[in-house]
Simulated assay, not measured.
Amino acid sequence: MAKKKDKFALLLTDISSNIKEAATFFYDFKINNVRDLKIFYDTVKEHEAKGDSLVHRTTKELNSAFITPIEREDIMMLTITLDDVIDGLEECAALFEMYSIIHPTDHMKSFVTAIKNMTIEMDHCTELLANKKYGDIHEHAVKIKEYESNCDHLLRIAIKELFATEENPIKIMQYKEVYETLENIADYCQSVANTLETVVMKNA
C-alpha cells in the first residue's frame, strides 16, 4: 500500500501545479485583440489568487503543526519563492493588458517558453520532494538554472535590439519593462531551484 503523502507535500505540489498551469496558459493563449488581453489577464489573476489562498493555508498549517517532514523554515522558504513566480506572471500579464501588447515579440515568446519549461521542472521537483526522492531533485534544479542563464542572455539581446530598432520612446520604455519583468520571473524560478537544493542537502 502506498504511503500517505503528508499535508505539506500535498500543499507544495498544489502550489507548483497551479504555477505550471498558469505558465502553460500564458504560453498557449493566443491574443488577437484588446478584449483577449482582458481574458488573458483575468485568467492569470485567478491562478495568482488561488496561489495566495494555498500560501495562506500552508502558513496556517505550519503555525499549528507539531512535526513537519522537512524543516519548517524550508517549507516556508519554498512556499514564498514559489509564490514569487505566480506573482511575477500576474504582474507581467497586467503589463500586457495595460500596454495593450497584442503582438508579443519573438523575444517575449522565447522568455515565456523558458518560463513554462522552468515551471514544469519545478513541478517535477515538488513531486519528488513529496515522494522523498531527494536524490532525483538535483538534475531538475540544474535545468532550471540553465534556463535562467539563457534568460539572462536573452534579456541583453532583447534590450539591445529594442534600442537599435524601435523609434517610439514610449514603446521602448514599455517593452523594456516587460522584458525585465519576464527576467525577474526566471530569477524567481532560480530561487526555487536554490531552495530545493538546500532541502536536498539537509535531507538526502
Rank of each mutant, 00 (worst) to 15 (best):
F96I: 01
E97F: 10
E97D: 07
E97G: 06
S100F: 05
S100Y: 04
S100L: 07
I101D: 05
I102N: 00
I102G: 01
I102V: 11
H103M: 08
H103E: 10
T105E: 07
D106W: 06
H107W: 07
H107I: 06
H107G: 04
M108S: 04
S110E: 15
S110R: 13
F111W: 05
T113L: 13
A114M: 15
A114L: 15
K116S: 13
T119I: 10
T119N: 09
E121H: 13
M122K: 02
M122W: 01
D123I: 06
D123V: 06
D123A: 11
H124G: 01
T126Y: 01
T126L: 02
T126M: 06
E127S: 09
L129T: 03
K132T: 10
K132M: 09
K133V: 08
K133S: 13
K133N: 13
Y134R: 09
Y134G: 11
G135W: 12
G135Y: 13
D136H: 14
E139Y: 11
H140W: 08
K143V: 15
K143D: 12
I144T: 08
E146V: 13
Y147M: 14
Y147D: 12
Y147C: 13
Y147V: 11
E148V: 07
E148R: 11
S149I: 14
D152M: 07
D152I: 05
L155H: 04
L155P: 05
R156E: 07
I157V: 08
I157A: 03
I157T: 05
A158Q: 07
I159P: 06
K160V: 01
K160H: 06
L162A: 02
A164F: 01
N168E: 01
I172S: 02
M173W: 00
M173P: 00
K176S: 04
E177P: 00
E177F: 01
E177T: 04
V178M: 00
V178A: 00
Y179R: 04
Y179K: 03
